[in-house]
Design a protein around this nucleic acid. Structure first.
Length: 175
DNA sequence: GCCAACGTTGGC
DNA sequence: GCCAACGTTGGC
């Protein structure tokens, strides 16, 4: 089988490369950023089990991340600008739906509710100082407001934050 | 307050 | 469809 195909001329036939937004697959873990003077972890906790729509996202990648979320997915709650630390864990309690804070139908949001605070907040400096977290979006895509988190990153940050993982697995929902 | 990073916009 | 200008984010 040495015969190679005559290389279908990397020219542009009909279906050349389309940016093909790669489907985002939920690992079950995410990270939500918020400026605490606008909407803080304490404010989310105050909303209780009903949670709160994560409105205001006007970035396509962040929006697509929310669209990929499933009920029961877990997320870190990160305080940007002030605090610069991961302070809590929240849970997706409503799937992506239109963002009521705009008439533009292209923006969606999920609802999240507080699950528990980190016994020890994990700072951005902590994250940056940990080689295991070098590829975390918080480091590599600083400006992305809704980020995916791998299972490994989740476990490491939880370890650093003294989080008891008991009963904290994301629910295995069917898609 | 500064400025780097980066997403978006708009002219061509 | 490219790319420079522009605006925003967010750490420092």
């Amino acid at each position: 089988m040495t015969a190679k195909k005559p290389a279908p001329a990397p020219s542009k036939t009909s279906a050349t490369k389309r940016p093909a937004p790669k489907p985002i697959v939920s690992t079950g873990y995410w990270l939500f950023k918020s400026e605490p003077d606008v909407f803080s972890w304490e404010m989310l906790q105050a909303k209780g089990a009903a949670g709160e729509p994560w409105t205001g996202v006007r970035n396509y990648l962040a929006r697509n991340n929310m669209r990929a979320m499933r009920l029961g997915d877990l997320g870190f709650f990160y305080h940007s600008n002030i605090g610069l630390e991961i302070v809590g864990i929240c849970e997706v309690c409503a799937l992506s739906h239109p963002d009521a804070t705009t008439d533009d139908p292209k923006w969606d949001c999920v609802d999240v509710r507080a699950v528990r605070a980190l016994p020890k907040p994990v700072t951005l400096a902590d994250v940056k100082a940990n080689p295991k977290l070098a590829k975390m979006s918080l480091v590599t895509s600083m400006r992305l407001s809704v980020q995916p988190v791998t299972a490994e990153e989740w476990a490491e940050v939880c370890r650093m934050g003294h989080v008891d993982l008991k009963g904290l697995a994301p629910k295995k929902n069917k898609r």
